[in-house]
Write a protein that binds this DNA or RNA. Sequence first.
DNA 1: GTTTCCATGTCGGTG
DNA 2: CACCGACGTGGAAAC
Lengths: 231, 231
Amino acid sequence: MRVVIARCSVDYMGRLTAHLPLATRLLMVKADGSVLVHSDGGSYKPLNWMAPPCAMAEVEPTDDERAEGVRQCWQVQHAKSDDRLRILLHEVLHDSSHDLGIDPGLVKDGVEAQLQALLAEHIHTLGEGYTLVRREYQTPIGPVDIVAKDPTGATVAVEIKRRGDIDGVEQLTRYLELLNRDPHLAPVSGVFAAQQIKPQARTLATDRGIRCVTLDYDELRGIDDATTRLF
Amino acid sequence: MRVVIARCSVDYMGRLTAHLPLATRLLMVKADGSVLVHSDGGSYKPLNWMAPPCAMAEVEPTDDERAEGVRQCWQVQHAKSDDRLRILLHEVLHDSSHDLGIDPGLVKDGVEAQLQALLAEHIHTLGEGYTLVRREYQTPIGPVDIVAKDPTGATVAVEIKRRGDIDGVEQLTRYLELLNRDPHLAPVSGVFAAQQIKPQARTLATDRGIRCVTLDYDELRGIDDATTRLF
DNA sequence: GTTTCCATGTCGGTG
DNA sequence: CACCGACGTGGAAAC
């Protein structure tokens, strides 16, 4: 990993064309050749970058560029597309390299999968008398998150999202349309379950006869695993 | 901007729980307090991070931690949520700070907007006898990218995407449903135009009587502005 | 390998 | 501030 702090300008050409005027920035060159250009703000997204696989070449600045104060010219070329990044360094304030080794990688704990497991476990959240049939019920157009039966024994398809958006309603609608073609299953009703349901999604769902259920993650999880807190 | 290279472990707790085992990484602390943890590979996304607004505090390691080799403990707390990042530094290999100033920011040139402009300009791409009515035709549920008339004078709604996905077809379907409620416009047909159209999207579109058109960006743009190339 | 869907998405526009 | 859609989306899992 090479870290350079430099006054530089950057040009990108590929899926779009972009330019960064002359300013002081942090340049990160990773072991795989990828390059990141960071400013001192924003979030984790760099101002500009080149994703691996790619190769960086330091080329001689032209006379014109040299006359304008350019000391180094980096050209980064993507290996599989014609994406290119060109960095003109005017003043190098810091330049160091470090051997970081291979990272063991991130260990994550659930999001939507956990919500699904929790709702499957506490299927009564949908109402008294509901029973779980299956999680991840496979269909030709994708898996239905949860299939259950309501107190009358009718089939219910549940779509789970962290944030309930209009897309999720469309997705559930396609599942319902498909499932209702099966005379063994029909009539299948739909439940749209999410931590938060956007008004537009709720309106669309209701209009299509789909019930909306707001999931309370903490309530589902219960207070039993407070020990997992960090501090 | 502070740049630290250190052997460290990281814990995140917030929307999910995540852990990074002890390894050497680059830590970036930006002027707004945000923190990025980068490995020497992957793409521009850090292994872990805290987005602004947030505050970092260096706290004393506990005796246990100190016994395990922890030299510094950083606690980063998000200002508006209860997201927390905890970084235990075991060995600091580099630590430097730099004043980068405010970045003038990125200057971008089109993507979808450019495709839209180009298709509006070359509306005959849809076929002989097509005429442009309007770009960004406003409706209560959002703007229709392009409204045109086909050779018979019938109205055509065009949805443009760089990547033609199922979402785009759904979006266009909603527009068509709305537009066709207007007796002055009906019948309105649909065209789904994208640089690349996914098979499922194409199937869904065709099933709904929506025509699919693949856009060739370079062909639309023509060879006239080859001068805009970088190298 | 391709396709599909999730994301601690992030980011910018608009009401 | 919230909602909504685009993104050089990136990334992982399913097929």
